[in-house]
Design a protein around this nucleic acid. Sequence first.
DNA 1: GTGAAAGCGCTAACAT
DNA 2: ATGTTAGCGCTTTCAC
Lengths: 359, 359
Amino acid sequence: MPDERERPDAEPGRATLKEVARLAGVSRSTTSRVLNDHPSVRPDVRARVQRVMDEVGYVPDGVARSLRGGRSGIIGLVIPQPPATVFGDAYFAALVGAVVATSQGDGCTVATVLVDEPDGDRGTRAIGASERDGDLVERLATGGLLDGVVVTASVMGDPLAADLRRAGLHVVVVGEPGDRSIPSVDVDNHGGGRAAVEHLVHGGRRRLVVVGGPRTNASARSRRAGAREAAAAVGATVVADVAASDFSVDSGRRAMADLVAASDDVDFDGVVAGSDAIAFGAMKVLHDRGVAVPDQVGVVGFDDLAPARLADPRLTTVRQPIEQVGRRAVERLLDAVGGNPAATREVLEVELVSRGSTP
Amino acid sequence: MPDERERPDAEPGRATLKEVARLAGVSRSTTSRVLNDHPSVRPDVRARVQRVMDEVGYVPDGVARSLRGGRSGIIGLVIPQPPATVFGDAYFAALVGAVVATSQGDGCTVATVLVDEPDGDRGTRAIGASERDGDLVERLATGGLLDGVVVTASVMGDPLAADLRRAGLHVVVVGEPGDRSIPSVDVDNHGGGRAAVEHLVHGGRRRLVVVGGPRTNASARSRRAGAREAAAAVGATVVADVAASDFSVDSGRRAMADLVAASDDVDFDGVVAGSDAIAFGAMKVLHDRGVAVPDQVGVVGFDDLAPARLADPRLTTVRQPIEQVGRRAVERLLDAVGGNPAATREVLEVELVSRGSTP
DNA sequence: GTGAAAGCGCTAACAT
DNA sequence: ATGTTAGCGCTTTCAC
């Protein structure tokens, strides 16, 4: 029997509380108290237990703790978009970054969940090996692994957030929730659309086209509505109002290409785009057509992501505080998880950033 | 007593297996068997139990299952970079996207973990409310919530991956692991650097500058090494060899600005950049200086992310299969978790994509 | 201040 | 084919 201890430190990280208790010569209860900084432990005992913990490299089992305590320390970030959309999209990159960073600062982990088919048969997409009819929502949601979820809005009327809520989860929506009783964090899309038009008109433009995001998207809808209202208010004309199929450069390019293909020459002097990317796509088409930006046509984007500052000309755009949105969403979710729900809608301000693509 | 059942369906999603068993008039074991599609359950009983499950909206508690089974169905994606770096970086966006998508296809969830301070005092960054000295690694790793982790390489010699492995976790590194015994998935950075130079030389360029990524980064180092070797082999001259502080547009801009500020005029005709973004930054400086790309100077990037196809001129670059990298990393991690570890290094091919920024 | 015991929700021998 | 029993690792009354 060469060694005092039974199994020195064969399995790092696999030491159990029970084991620590035995090694320290105390009960599991006491060990647990030490672990949780419970006051009623004699200092010397506490020290001894601590030392053993350090020696064996004890780390409490998170799963067991969750089972007991009800909280896992994991929140979900649910993005109802096909992977391809999320991949290259700088908006999502920024949002995910903000959510992850904030969560981490607040001591919890983020599980990112992409949900295909925002509109339809989400249920058919089996996710595990299990044969249970396996609605993705239920599986992830009520599995209990998640303390709550931040859901990004996508298609209007998507019942996802409401479903998750009904499943008993804490939910905060980023964007417009179908159901106004669901807490949400959004930006002032309507005001942003308005600001874009006002800026163009202020620069002397009167014949505008709107190349907005998808008509099924609530944010796109608000931006568009804001733009149209502002145009009407100041007496500018909306020559055309088209929708890109998503928020990408490519869809923006296609939308603008279709538009200018229709008429012989460009009969507008301003473009209000549904996103920076759409604006880039549109500008590309204009550029290829030999239309000068901003001299002939002014272009305003929406987002103010990094490329806006790099494009040539640099893009005038409506800045939305994505990081702040992500942060607030997490903060509010964590409040709710902690027992302080606030079923309110929070709308953050946007800001027009004037650069080179407008006069 | 108006209702037969005790509490109809007051708490959706909170029904327990025990409850289902009671309602269906069977034992918990049988219920569990139904849940796991165990063959030995009489069809009628199975049907009855299923029905009760549906009625009460039963969803098994993931935490409890994990506690029992050992697997949580969650893998971590550990990125040792400050949030700010990860935010706008299209490379990470693509990688995260690929990892999430693959994982989801394989029935598990991805928890994204950003670790600040890739090099140093990671331990000082407390992550939870707990007072335990809380090394981030240990907390997340051995918490048991994670079945394994994909770790992205960053600073050379970072012990993170090795630490996690030692903590008993399954680990797959994306990039170069410090320790070659750790399974990894990488791309042929060296070959990519070589290809870039060969392409430039093939186009008649002989005086090259390398604007690589940080010298502390293994991928950047390999790309640089490949470029230098190729230059030496074909008799081209590396006029300058500078390192951007990271892989961003801005650091590329700064690096090139410093370079051209030094000499009066541009005495090179080719640039090998450490990333697409660095290439863009460099091109911006050249453009502002009135240097024509590709006529006077050819530029080759590395990554082939979306912007490469949109820039003007479109960027010639070394395409790395990021999605495939992410996918393979997850696949191999899941293999390991499932009991089929393979301590190998897998290197995927890159491909030079010739566009407008080179002659 | 400390320990004994019960139990979170689930699964897996081991009976029957 | 089904039920009984014993835990997974932890926390938490409740006694002492």
